[in-house]
């Protein structure tokens, strides 16, 4: 059972292979993302995050999920030497971590119901579990940053999370907290495969902000692999990445 909806300004797809799949299951996942958007959207003036950013809520009034996300953000900031920072111009924007965290939680909602084979894709950030409809590993394409209709790599995974950061034509949405005015021009795409999507998403955001050094950072993380593409179409990737390029 496969369903897609536009939520949080991006297409979110849930595909469940298990025969036990019901529309109720996919609906629950979409409702969870709706809840996340209403809480953490930096654009919606009614979101809890916006209310924090405009000083309408005191810290002791924060929801448990908000406290958790801030705690995780602080931890990630420490683990990335400050490259991951949700504070920018005195406003908080934890989007670089919330998406992966939400996908991770949504995947656990399915697992708790006994679902074993599925994927959740939120705007190109993916958590997979088990096998695909052909009873093989899930096949994930890495999009060509120079041509959105093309893939430049295909990886085969069964329980990992995959996240990609990139520079977009609309403007760079990721900035380097150490040099906020410097544009990140040398790297156009960075894909990270991690034990789960929460880990992949938070570290891909930080590593992308590091520019060319980002792939070195990823290579030092145990259980992580990365594939970086620079503005000249040259890919630099971690030594273990190619184990995911094989179907078995």
């Amino acid at each position: 059972m496969k369903a897609t909806r536009i939520l949080m300004d991006m297409p979110i797809t849930v595909d469940i292979v298990d025969k036990t799949a019901t529309a109720k299951m996919t609906d629950a996942i979409f409702n969870y993302f709706k809840y996340i958007d209403e809480k953490f959207s930096p654009f919606k003036p009614t979101s809890e995050l916006s209310q924090i950013n405009t000083g309408r809520i005191d810290k002791h009034q924060w929801s448990r999920d908000m406290q958790m996300v801030f705690k995780l953000s602080l931890q990630t900031k420490r683990e990335t030497n400050g490259y991951f920072d949700i504070r920018h111009n005195d406003k908080y924007n934890p989007s670089g971590l919330v998406k992966g965290w939400a996908i991770y939680n949504a995947a656990n909602l399915l697992k708790k119901q006994g679902v074993k084979n599925f994927f959740i894709d939120a705007g190109g950030d993916i958590q997979v579990a088990g096998k695909n409809h052909e009873e093989k590993k899930w096949r994930v394409g890495i999009r060509n940053p120079f041509n959105r209709n093309e893939n430049i790599k295909i990886i085969f995974i069964s329980h990992e999370g995959v996240a990609t950061s990139g520079t977009y034509i609309r403007g760079q949405h990721i900035y380097n907290p150490h040099e906020p005015h410097k544009k990140i021009n040398d790297i156009v795409s960075l894909t990270v495969i991690a034990p789960n999507i929460y880990e992949a998403d938070r570290f891909v955001t930080a590593a992308f902000a590091m520019g060319k050094k980002g792939i070195e950072f990823i290579s030092e993380l145990k259980g992580f692999e990365g594939y970086m593409i620079d503005c000249k179409g040259i890919a630099t990737f971690t030594s273990g990445f190619n184990k995911y390029v094989k179907p078995d």
Binding site: G141, R143, F146, N151, A163, I169, E216, C231, I234, S239
Partner: peptide, 30 residues
């Protein structure tokens, strides 16, 4: 610990795609 290659289009089928949503600015410049 790192390897390099020139990126190359792949034609095989996939279940899911991971990537940024728009063409990069750097590429337009290039």
């Amino acid at each position: 610990m790192l390897k390099q290659e020139v990126i190359q289009a792949q034609n095989a089928n996939v279940d899911i795609v991971s990537g940024a949503t728009d063409t990069s600015q750097a590429f337009i410049q290039s």
